[in-house]
Design a protein around this nucleic acid. Structure first.
Lengths: 342, 342
DNA sequence: CTGTTAGCGCCTTCAC
DNA sequence: GTGAAGGCGCTAACAG
């Protein structure tokens, strides 16, 4: 026995003294010139009076659609992906779509696991920070890739929305070069994703093109302790860098710790930069110079593209610019720092 | 024309040479002694071969259930709620349920807004950090409240899962008292929620019971800049506190900034404590003494309770203990700090 | 302009 | 032990 059966379209029809199909037409908004305005209004009134809400399950069954899309992110624990979800959910809601999130399991290679177990009731997939070629897993499901780099395959089968991370990194490097830095340390995320490869390449390109430019590199996991270790390794080099360029704000926090452990002041004795501009960037002291990546916008644009795709349109690939935000963690290299070179 | 129509139970029946009902029984797991083992196995094989997945929409329609629950959180942008979602989704998935998130709009009072617009296709609600009495909005929908304090109404109509924030705050206060602190500054979140009221009350109780104990209080929004201002106000008092007890790790970050602005060393000249133990706590320098709130566990336990409720059981209210994590931001008050009293 | 009809895919009596 | 039939609530043909 169902607890409190909600009114159905049949009830509305009865209340309004018309048939179900009329109700469906009116409430579906496609009665232009097929139903008399008077009837339409009485149907609406009846629906209102009864507090009628269409049964989604029935509608889904009939229409063969679920009005639900799956957002796949590596994790929701990292501060970056909450906003991605928020942006995606916002535009989805505006179109009557819901968003379910799936954090892909650590064993990322499993062919047919969790999200597709009980969860095949989905119209499309938004996959963030996932290798582009991993999308064979989606089968025929419409998908758009976020922050995964341009689709290398001919024609770009799948729409992509990316950040302009290369430009962002170039902006950082340019800012630092302008400050007078020449010896760069790259505290790189040991994560095999397009976004990090692009950052590394852009940084290397700028530094290489700089007269007297030198680039050291150490890798670490994206956590504070691991980042601190990597920074320490960089700073203990024979001819240490005057700036630590970090792949992530969290890594920059580790760099701060390394600096403090070594008694180095930021920024007068060591400049540090981050990437992403999450909350942490302004919580640190001094506040972090970083590149702001519009995470919420990524989710929003990605969802818009997916909705286009579902509507039969062919969305264009987009790249969202990342802006350099100069705060207090960068300064000209200390004059004395070149003395060591002698 | 549907793109690629997936196999239906009818197809499976045909493939296995049986009827739909047999398929339903077998795949539904309730064929004990009604279907021959041989038939059952052949049905399973057929389903496997065809890659059959039951159509959720049809199943929902027939069963009158959606196997979806709504998680309502204030925001997913704050670092705390990602884990709550993760925990909830994990146990939900284990029971074949999906979780959709809704971040409640800023205009929290709107009677019938976003989540219930197109989103009535839900079996239950998990509401986090929401005023307990706000749940009239859920109507008849089964709900459990998270981090909202015990239900004040007779009998506890709605199951609740809470943190032991009072115990946590007492642990902090006890730790500080043991260190020798007597003059406390409370940098309180200006948010009217049970969890913050409980923290304030617990702190006040301990300090009041301390010989020579004094408690100052300033409120701020949960963001770094606002927290810094509040901390500054506290520290510029005639007889400033020797410790700043903050309602949130993020607020503690603001307190750090205030300390630095005043040239005060943490912890030798000023102790600071946080609350929550998010990522930030160990990213700060020095690392923050705080109370660890098991956010993921909150989501998991909450979902377990909701699932119990949906299954007709009556889950008990639970409170999850918060553990004091002593790190490097607390120390005995500086000996000289009492000199001012003269 | 409006009503009747026929399923969407599934589960569950009820006969056999 | 198995099959046939009905209907969940909705929408889109097709008649009138």
């Amino acid at each position: 026995m169902p607890a409190i059966s909600r009114p159905t379209s049949k009830d509305v029809a009865q209340e309004a003294g018309v048939s179900q199909s009329t109700v469906s037409l009116v409430l579906g908004g496609k009665w232009s010139g097929r139903v008399s305005p008077a009837t339409a209004r009485s149907v609406r009134d009846a629906a209102e009076r009864l507090g009628y809400r269409p049964n989604q399950a029935a509608r889904n069954l009939r229409l063969g659609t679920t009005r639900t899309v799956l957002l796949m992110v590596p994790t929701l624990t990292a501060p970056f992906f909450g906003p991605v979800y928020t942006g995606a959910a916002r535009v989805a809601a505006r179109h009557g779509f819901g968003v379910v999130v799936s954090t892909w399991p650590d064993d990322a290679e499993g062919p047919a696991d969790s999200p597709f177990g009980s969860e095949e009731a989905i119209d499309g997939v938004l996959a963030s920070s996932m290798a582009v070629d991993a999308l064979g897993r989606f089968g025929e499901t419409p998908a758009v890739m976020l922050d995964s780099g341009p689709d290398p395959r001919t024609g770009g089968t799948v729409p992509t929305i990316d950040f302009g991370v290369a430009d962002g990194m170039r902006a950082i490097a340019g800012h630092l070069a302008g400050l007078g830095h020449r010896r760069f340390g790259h505290v790189a995320a040991a994560v095999d994703q397009w976004t990090f490869r692009a950052r590394a390449a852009a940084l290397a390109a700028v530094v290489t093109g700089l007269p007297g430019g030198a680039l050291l590199r150490e890798e670490c996991a994206i956590d504070v302790a691991s980042a601190k270790d990597a920074a320490l390794r960089l700073l203990s080099a024979a001819d240490p860098p005057t700036v630590l360029v970090c792949d992530d704000d969290l890594i920059a926090a580790g760099a701060y710790k390394a600096a403090r452990a070594l008694g180095l002041d930021v920024p007068s004795e060591l400049s540090v930069t981050g990437f992403d501009d999450v909350l942490l960037a302004t919580a640190l002291e001094p506040e972090l110079t970083t590149v702001r990546l519009p995470a919420e916008e990524l989710g929003a644009q990605g969802m818009a593209a997916l909705l286009d795709l579902l509507a039969g349109r062919r969305p264009a690939a987009r790249v969202l610019p990342g802006d350099l935000v100069v705060r207090a963690s960068t300064a000209p290299p200390r004059a004395g720092s070149r003395a060591k070179e002698v």
